[in-house]
């Protein structure tokens, strides 16, 4: 009896979840480990959906760029995790939403609190920069980072701002004393191309 009620409650939750996804125009959502295989699967899925919708080539390319950089940001920094919240390492949430005017790509993953300041400073300074400044920064980071894999910190963020022309929206929510959930969303216009 109890079990039956639980199942019903769960199925009702699924329906609410579905309605909520529809209301927010979410076309893809994933929670779990973010690997290279996952990155490939989602980018190709989104790509074929955009092709089916006859999305402009420029928009398709920009969405692809943003998705790859966002997903690789999480998978690449999976090893950086040293706190006790090892379960969060390399995991996160990823979602794509779409309305008449734009696509949004949102990621969320746990980060150690001592990285918040560095991330905030980086995102703020990228957000303040104009096109030309971003270009110069990208070139400099590429040169400096070319000898190490993880060097050129923020290359992905710079690229997203350059490709979308829009500010990177982000938010940190506390998980524990040591960690926070880092949410980042980028929008790609479907009309200004």
């Amino acid at each position: 009896m109890d079990n039956k009620r639980d199942v019903k409650g769960f199925l009702e939750f699924v329906y609410e979840f579905y309605k909520s996804m529809k209301a927010h125009e979410i076309t893809l959502v994933y929670e779990g480990e973010i690997t290279h295989q996952i990155t490939k699967a989602f980018t190709s899925l989104t790509e074929s959906n955009m092709e089916k919708d006859d999305e402009a080539g420029t928009v398709q390319r920009k969405v692809f760029h943003v998705m790859v950089e966002c997903l690789q940001n999480i998978s690449k920094h999976a090893d950086d995790f040293t706190s006790n919240d090892y379960l969060f390492s390399g995991r996160g949430i990823f979602l794509v939403s779409k309305n008449e005017d734009e696509y949004s790509v949102t990621t969320g993953n746990a980060v150690e609190n001592d990285r918040i300041e560095e991330l905030t400073d980086m995102l703020e300074s990228i957000n303040r920069m104009d096109k030309e400044e971003l270009k110069q920064l990208y070139k400099r980071q590429m040169k400096e980072g070319r000898l190490s894999d993880k060097g050129g910190a923020g290359l992905g963020f710079i690229d997203i701002k350059r490709k979308t022309g829009k500010e990177l929206e982000y938010h940190f929510l506390p998980i524990s004393d040591d960690t926070s959930f880092f949410l980042l969303t980028s929008t790609i216009s479907r009309t200004e191309i």
Binding site: R61, F64, Q72, M142, K143, R146, G152, L155, G156, I158
Partner: peptide, 16 residues
């Protein structure tokens, strides 16, 4: 037709 930011550094290595 496409390269990610991580590849951009390696392409620079080749060019250098």
């Amino acid at each position: 037709t496409y390269f990610n930011t991580a590849s951009s550094k390696l392409l620079l290595d080749i060019l250098m």
